[in-house]
């Protein structure tokens, strides 16, 4: 369903890869809040997320993100300035420190160096600034990825399977962190139960995207205490 002020508006959006429909033509809107996208493995969630991140072109249809049409090249740069995207197996440089990695992201996000310290403190990473990424446990490394993704204060954050492989405690901590990352956070998972309670939930199966109804007062665990 498309509502006024939807962060993402897709009309007839279709995504194909290697001759296979990953998303058959679909019309949908992504509203503010924590939005879940659930579906079995290898059903195209990552490709759809990369498309919403403007890193892939849709096969057909139109796509508006944050009020800009991605078909317009001048708009594209404006959209990209306000998006944060973290792929499932995000690449990090094993020999870079946490501070260096987030500063690297800050350069490309065009934000000053003092924002690096601020986002590291926000992600409770201040003590690990000088540690090499390869030495960190997975949940802390994920926090570093989130810091790099959100160093510029994006309006839309797209996270691909961020909770995969985390233990229960780390999952709870990260889930509580999600609503604070941006006004709209789109998170994927194989199982919708892993996402906790979301403001909006989509499921994708066999190339079809379906918006699943939730309780009207549903909110992701951790509430909407956005910073």
């Amino acid at each position: 369903m498309i509502v006024e002020n939807s962060t993402v508006v897709a009309r007839g959006l279709a995504v194909r890869r290697a001759g296979r429909w990953l998303l058959r033509p679909a019309t949908f809107g992504v509203r503010a809040g924590v939005v879940g996208l659930a579906g079995p493995a290898k059903t195209g969630k990552s490709t759809l997320l990369a498309t919403l991140a403007t890193l892939r072109r849709p096969h057909s249809g139109s796509l508006e993100i944050l009020g800009f049409d991605i078909g317009d090249n001048t708009s594209l740069r404006s959209i990209r300035a306000r998006i944060g995207f973290l792929p499932e197996h995000f690449s990090w440089a094993a020999n870079l420190t946490v501070g260096q990695f987030v500063a690297y992201a800050a350069y490309y996000k065009c934000v000053p160096g003092d924002r690096v310290r601020a986002v590291l403190e926000r992600m409770e990473l201040a003590d690990t600034t000088s540690m090499e990424l390869s030495l960190l446990p997975p949940d802390v490394r994920l926090r570093v990825g989130l810091a790099a993704t959100c160093v510029h204060g994006p309006d839309l954050v797209l996270l691909d399977e961020p909770l995969a492989g985390l233990d229960e405690r780390a999952t709870a901590e990260i889930t509580a962190l999600l609503p604070t990352l941006a006004p709209t956070v789109l998170v994927t998972a194989e199982d919708s139960a892993a996402l906790g309670r979301c403001d909006q939930l989509f499921t994708v199966t066999r190339g079809r995207l379906v918006e699943t109804s939730r309780a009207p007062d549903a909110a992701c665990a951790g509430g909407r205490d956005r910073v």
Binding site: L55, S78, A81, F85, L86, A105, K109, T149
Partner: peptide, 20 residues
């Protein structure tokens, strides 16, 4: 090939997409 994996950082930039 290695740098391609960082497109999620370097591609989503308000700078020119050619900078990376």
């Amino acid at each position: 090939v290695r740098e391609h994996r960082l497109d999620y950082l370097r591609g989503l930039t308000p700078r020119s997409p050619a900078i990376g």
